[in-house]
């Protein structure tokens, strides 16, 4: 089958890129040190790529929309808001004393609680419209962003630097302290929804068809929203917000694999995201000598592709 073949090709490409990234420029004197840096970074890259690809694919299916990403829900703004709030109220020393792991768990917990609350409030009402959820998410996102900016303006410039560090996606100063915890949490999160993954194909037919075919729609959607919040928290905590990567990879996976089956789509999107990040990092590190952050490249390409998608959609 063509779809399967393409997935094998993508996997091979990823394997080669990862090996290249790990092994390029090693010599007998520094290999130990270099690998001790590169291996965690590679794992983090793959984890970020996977969580972004996974969450975006699921999110687009839930909303039945090809040009949305979870950042529309305002989740990454919420993450920055939480960080800003902690620094604003208690100072960056508290943030440091709490430890990265605690901070991470706190943020993930708050984000999941927020998305559940948002969901609960909206779905109690009769016209359970996912677009209303998005609209509220968008407004809340802007709200959190403005609040964060407001607090950032007020605090000491040195403290601001701490927040700024978290504001921009950067794979060079990745937050690798929380890597293992993030890995475990996202693994558990995916495990927790493993049984519901088969429902994704049905969900892509829309709410009414899904209910007709025996999917417990509200429950499953809620579960997936929790998963999405966890995965978005993981990637945002590790490297900061990357808005366009998800959009880019999910659509590329759809174009490339030409299937509606999520077992292929998700794997394809994860592979493409991993390839994009590993390749981008390889270029940024070895070719551009760390001068350009990879997120700029990704957002530039992603933005162009987004405009292209908008133009294409409006034609149909």
């Amino acid at each position: 089958m063509k779809t399967k073949q393409r997935i094998y090709i993508l996997s091979a490409a990823l394997l080669i890129l990862v090996l290249l990234y790990l092994l390029l420029g090693l010599n007998p004197f520094i290999w130990r040190y270099a690998l001790s840096l590169r291996i965690p970074k590679t794992i983090a890259l793959l984890l970020v790529a996977s969580s972004i690809a996974f969450s975006s694919t699921v999110f687009q299916t839930l909303t039945n929309n090809r040009i949305l990403t979870p950042s529309v829900l305002g989740l990454d703004s919420l993450y920055l808001f939480i960080q800003s709030l902690i620094v604003f109220l208690f100072g960056s020393s508290t943030l440091a004393r709490l430890g990265e792991n605690f901070n991470f768990i706190l943020s993930v917990g708050l984000m999941v609680a927020f998305s559940l609350l948002l969901f609960q409030l909206l779905f109690k009402r009769e016209e359970r419209n996912i677009f209303f959820l998005l609209l509220v998410g968008l407004v809340m996102g802007t709200f959190f962003q403005s609040l964060s900016t407001f607090m950032q303006v007020l605090i000491d410039p040195n403290e601001f630097l701490v927040i700024q560090n978290r504001m921009f996606a950067s794979f060079n100063n990745m937050n690798t302290e929380i890597l293992w915890l993030a890995l475990i949490i996202s693994f558990l999160a995916v495990l927790f929804t493993l049984k519901d993954l088969k429902n994704l194909d049905i969900l892509s037919l829309g709410r009414e068809n899904a209910i007709n075919l025996g999917v417990d729609y509200d429950f499953v959607v809620k579960k997936f929203l929790v998963l999405i919040s966890i995965l978005v928290s993981v990637s945002t905590a590790l490297v900061g917000p990357i808005t366009f990567l998800g959009l880019l990879v999910v659509n590329l996976a759809r174009e490339l694999l030409r299937t509606f089956r999520h077992k292929y789509l998700i794997v394809g999107a994860i592979l493409i995201a991993s390839i994009a990040l590993t390749f981008g990092q390889l270029i940024a590190e070895r070719l551009l000598n760390f001068s350009t952050p990879i997120s700029i490249i990704i957002n530039f390409i992603g933005g162009l592709y987004f405009i292209f998608l908008l133009l294409k959609e409006s034609k149909i």
């Binding site: 088969k198 194909d201 049905i202 037919l205 068809n209 075919l213 025996g214």
Partner: peptide, 9 residues
């Protein structure tokens, strides 16, 4: 898709 309630995919 009509068989989903029986086959679960």
């Amino acid at each position: 898709f009509g068989r989903f309630p029986y086959s679960e995919g």
